[in-house]
Design a binder for these strands. Structure first.
Lengths: 165, 165
DNA sequence: TTGGAGTGTCAACAAAGCTGACGTATTGTG
DNA sequence: CACAATACGTCAGCTTTGTTGACACTCCAA
């Protein structure tokens, strides 16, 4: 009021704007997971399997501990998911070469096939959204999301980002 | 390659960019829910309670059916959550005035107090992220998220957006 | 008056998270 | 070499939050 320029600049920080941002996150995340969920529910898998498959594909040969760090769940919880994926022949667990206590995880051909189906669906929605919005909006989207991450997760995101070239 | 201008414009639509967008959504959503989750876990409540409280606060007097539509769960699932909130005196369920089959849901004073704690925490993170990014990025963030929603959810988001003034 | 909509509740179940405890390799260290 | 620590797997049990299916009650409208 006393400083129209400054208050106009900060209009996007009103409680109402923030609440809309919160609700946008909520509804968008549901859209974000909807397509893979539909594919997964036809099989005996859930979102937890998707996450495991995604990050094993993303970093082939990753260890169980590393996956635990990325996913932020307990080893018991991850193990249950991993076991079914290994039993079903989607994931292969090889004894580590340098450290034989470790297990290196890889997707099999079948696992890769499912990963493709899932990520194709998810990318298609992301692509549509990105195209609808445009490059500037996409950059903003990414910057806000990155600023929203917690420290440890942001580090993991950035390191994946790096390794992805 | 054959058309450098066009390919540069569409660089944000490469599979690598889309994958980064997907991972950004994943990690950011975990940050997004982290603060309320920490508050809730000290009580006997979970994310489902938070969602119910949020949308009852957002649209006081809303009916159970309306809430079911917004949250996209079964009435049995919602009812379990709602019952504990009513028993604990956070939510009040009043018989509808025009249609006495309906129940109009309101937050009590205590419920409003919890809503404030939760949304304050969530807004604080959103505010920090928005401030770090800037108004242009925030607009892009919102546009991409809106484009990512499914039809029905987008309609609900927009109608909440309207009613919020 | 009767059918259907809105609501609540019971039972049973599943996915996916959690803690705690224990066992087994394997590795690193004193 | 002996021993502690690490990486992994697993058993048991619990919680939250979702699901179906079935049933009852109230109330509105045709």
């Amino acid at each position: 009021m006393s400083d129209p320029i400054r208050s106009e600049n900060l209009l996007y920080l009103t409680d109402e704007q923030l609440r809309q941002g919160i609700e946008a996150m909520y509804f968008a995340y549901r859209g974000f997971t909807a397509d893979p969920d539909r594919i997964l529910e036809s099989m005996a898998y859930g979102r937890a399997h998707h996450r495991a498959i995604h990050f094993i594909n993303r970093a082939p040969g990753t260890t169980v501990t590393n996956l635990l760090d990325i996913l932020g769940v307990t080893k018991q919880s991850l193990n249950r998911v991993l076991r079914t994926l290994i039993e079903d022949g989607l994931v292969e667990s090889r004894v580590g070469t340098s450290d034989r206590r470790e297990r290196n995880l890889f997707l099999t051909e079948e696992g890769t096939a499912l990963e493709h189906r899932l990520s194709d669906a998810q990318r298609a929605r992301m692509r549509t959204a990105f195209r609808e919005a445009g490059p500037e909006d996409v950059a903003g989207f990414r910057r806000v999301l990155e600023a929203m991450m917690e420290g440890e997760m942001k580090r993991q995101y950035l390191s994946l980002r790096e390794s992805g070239k």
